[in-house]
Write a protein that binds this DNA or RNA. Structure first.
Length: 193
DNA sequence: GACCAGGCACATC
DNA sequence: GATGTGCATGGT
């Protein structure tokens, strides 16, 4: 689903609320498709996604991704989804502006592959519980989940959604403030490790 | 008005 | 290989 892939890039270090405004503007402009977006000038795209912040950089990144889609898959998300996950992930990571989290979001939410997405919330929650180190690498954290959970797209999708939900409610300033709503997930977190 | 948000590339040491 | 910095808007 192209919209989710665009969202994955726009949400880089940005709240989803602001991303929605940008997505709406793309929808209204009728350019929320690989073909429509490719027709745009980068500057025009940039002004449409302004509310999502870092708009000049993100316009470049979106264009790089759309070019990638056209150069390799005739602009078809479906065709991209047919490629084996590991190969696709490697290729996505080579696109400028797509790092591990964005690549994995595209794989999970865009083409429904069972890939676990690690984000700031995941790190914050699980490191605060002493389950991972604060400076654990992306790959390390991902492997932790990947090795202990069944590879099920729906499960990963839901699990990530729950992490985001808890993460948002989580106190950001004082790691040990004691009022964070985390007690409930502690058991489930430990169970998978 | 300060601080933060579901990253990433690039420069520098 | 680790660490620092720029990118920018909108909500609290």
């Amino acid at each position: 689903m192209f919209e989710m892939m665009v969202g994955a890039i726009l949400t880089q270090n940005t709240s989803w609320r602001n991303v929605e405004k940008a997505i709406d503007s793309l929808k209204r402009g009728g350019v929320l498709t690989p073909g429509g977006m490719r027709q745009l000038k980068t500057s025009a795209l940039a002004s449409m996604i302004r509310p999502s912040g870092y708009y000049r950089i993100k316009a470049d990144r979106l264009m790089a991704f759309v070019d990638f889609l056209w150069e390799n898959y005739e602009g078809k998300v479906k065709k991209m989804g047919k490629e084996p996950v590991n190969e696709l992930r490697e290729r996505l990571l080579k696109v400028k502006g797509i790092g591990p989290e964005t690549a994995d979001s595209i794989l999970l939410y865009g083409v429904r592959k069972p890939v676990f997405v690690v984000d700031a919330y995941t790190k914050r929650i699980f490191s605060r519980h002493g389950i991972i180190s604060e400076k654990a690498s992306y790959d390390h954290i991902q492997r932790l989940f990947s090795d202990h959970l069944p590879h099920d797209e729906k499960l990963f999708n839901e699990y990530h959604a729950l992490i985001v939900q808890v993460g948002k409610a989580l106190c950001k300033k004082t790691p040990k403030c004691g009022i964070c709503p985390l007690k409930g997930i502690e058991q489930s977190a430990k169970r998978i490790v």
